[in-house]
Design a binder for these strands. Structure first.
Lengths: 335, 335
DNA sequence: ATCACAAATGTTATCGGTAACATGATCGAT
DNA sequence: ATCGATCATGTTACCGATAACATTTGTGAT
């Protein structure tokens, strides 16, 4: 594999001149430039980015760490990230933590050892704090996306989970429901907490008591504990509506209901956070609080790149961007 | 950020000894080893993999290039790849070509410039051949997964598309259908061709003429041309069954049918290749030829790693692993 | 006590680039 | 003709690790 010296030799110049041609830096006479380009082509030369990054102390690489790469919400974030990164000449390494802080830590270690320029992370939970401190200690900038982390000061792009949850539950209440249960992700994630808070506030503002037992907590992932739905159905009184805190939970809820022979919305109203992929669902059906996932990605990436490139002077203090979800009312909540 | 010399100095040894400790190579007295480890911890030292890779001429990194990261089929392949890679101490960089050979080429260039040790690729199409030749010219080993590429000799892990398609269509025929249409991906991908061939063979073996016009070709991606379904519905005679060549196409077909007020399977039978994510679909419903996507990933990765590590001697000649799909009969095909 | 060999550690060169500085050529202005 | 500025290119050092070889120390056998 040819290196820069081979090219230089063939073109009859110094490696530095070749470097200038590659990077469009400094002055190079047009004639020499062409000679170098010809030599590069002839040798099928591709610069070695390891060497380049080593000496430049910069890799032009970002890492995106998400808790679940099979969730369309996060793949959409990933697209936003990637598109924005590419526009700014950054690469993206995509990592999947499986909602597991330990696996997340491994990836963060990797980020350090391959010297990424920055990290965008939807943290596994509050346990991610130590992981993030590792980034801090290496002065690698990062941006939180979708989820805040307790005790961590950083740029953050989130949805207004409290508001979205409030509106969804209010919608149910307006429809006459009073016995509304909730299934949410582990409360170690900020979104689960905020959605529960929004749920709670909506209830209380309408004089409905908040019952701890009606909030079931499980993994946000698709392999959630199926029996939770059963448990809710066995409550007395039985809830007439269920608020699922994300898309996968909603689908599981509906499956659980079907399994018991219950129809949506006739026997049980269902609403949820995040879009449930309409392509897979065949027909849009669920009442949801839809989040602008793509923008989560683009904005987070912009913030990160700003930080990476902000040069001297004091770094901008942590910014918090909150995007509003859009409540889309469809059949699953009844009317 | 501390480097290996800082650690060495603090531990009172040479950098080489530190390197030995890090890599568990050579002999190091237990006492010095501990001293070095203490120094590493004290300085919060993380080795620089750029430098390491540069000199070792090896990055312990694989690239996985898929045409559509939002397709659960490919995310499942990705999981298989990642799990296997990690077990063998490789990292995986995940790349998304969007079924676009040009974007694919950019990623392959990136693979070269960051010197990945190998590539697993579900190629965008036959146009990928030139891209792969680039890898050849740099002697970067690669394995094709899911899709073969015309004129490319390499390890390949595919499903038996012809057989799966044959069985699905035969199933429809056995149910009495004779007017069976097909919607498939671009015929520049091997799977589209093979599925069409399987479809064709099933028809012909049962004395049903193959009609070119009944095979509609479009993108495998979720943004397929919606009007194709309409076109099929306007054929005379109107088909009574549709074979969709992948999961997304099937969902689009069903949406198109719903849009026209047609029920599945009463008014139109539908079968397809690949699983349609049962979690999203709420109820398993589609008759499918299910492929062991996870195994696609694990096997491809094993083959690749073998090639990377095979050392001297003649490289193994290209291997072809063909996995059988499993036809799962459900409601969408009627009975 | 001596020797052969393994263990423990160090030295030097190198991977393939680029930053920083140095040098010589070119050029327009006076 | 002279000079400062800009252009064009080269030289040197270094990024942070490891391979390959060199050296010193330790150990057991005779």
């Amino acid at each position: 594999m040819a290196n820069i010296s081979d090219v230089a030799r063939l073109a009859g110049v110094s490696p530095m001149t070749v470097s200038r041609v590659i990077n469009h830096s400094g002055h190079v006479k047009e004639e020499t430039r062409l000679r170098v380009l010809r030599a590069m082509k002839e040798l099928n030369y591709v610069p070695n980015d390891l060497a380049r990054s080593l000496v430049r102390r910069r890799t032009d690489t970002l890492a995106l760490i998400v808790p679940d790469i099979t969730n369309p919400f996060f793949t959409t974030v990933a697209r936003g990230t990637e598109d924005t990164a590419r526009k700014n000449d950054f690469r993206v390494v995509l990592c999947n933590s499986d909602e597991d802080p330990a696996k997340e830590l491994e990836y963060i270690r990797m980020c350090v050892s391959i010297r990424v320029d920055g990290v965008i992370i939807a943290a596994a939970g509050d346990g991610s704090r130590k992981n993030l401190e590792l980034l801090d200690s290496f002065e690698i900038p990062y941006v939180l996306v979708d989820r805040k982390v307790d005790g961590v000061q950083a740029d953050v792009v989130t949805g207004d989970s409290r508001m979205g949850a409030f509106q969804l539950v209010k919608h149910l209440i307006d429809l006459g429901h009073r016995d509304i249960a909730m299934i949410t992700g582990f409360l170690t994630t900020s979104t689960a907490r905020e959605r529960r808070d929004g749920y709670r506030r909506a209830l209380e503002e309408h004089g409905i008591p908040f019952r701890e037992a009606w909030v079931k907590e499980t993994s946000y992932m698709r392999n959630m504990d199926f029996t939770l739905v059963e448990q809710l159905l066995d409550c007395t009184p039985r809830p007439t509506a269920i608020f699922a805190a994300n898309n996968f939970l909603a689908v599981q809820v509906i499956r659980g209901l079907r399994h018991r022979g219950l129809r949506v919305p006739e026997d049980m109203a269902v609403v949820c956070f995040d879009d449930v992929d309409p392509y897979s669902l065949v027909e849009p059906f669920l009442t949801v609080a839809s989040q602008p996932a793509y923008n989560f990605g683009t904005i987070a990436t912009q913030l990160l790149i700003e930080r990476i490139e902000h040069g001297e002077g004091p770094a901008p203090s942590p910014r918090s961007i909150v995007l509003q979800p859009e409540v889309i009312i469809r059949k699953s909540s009844g009317h």
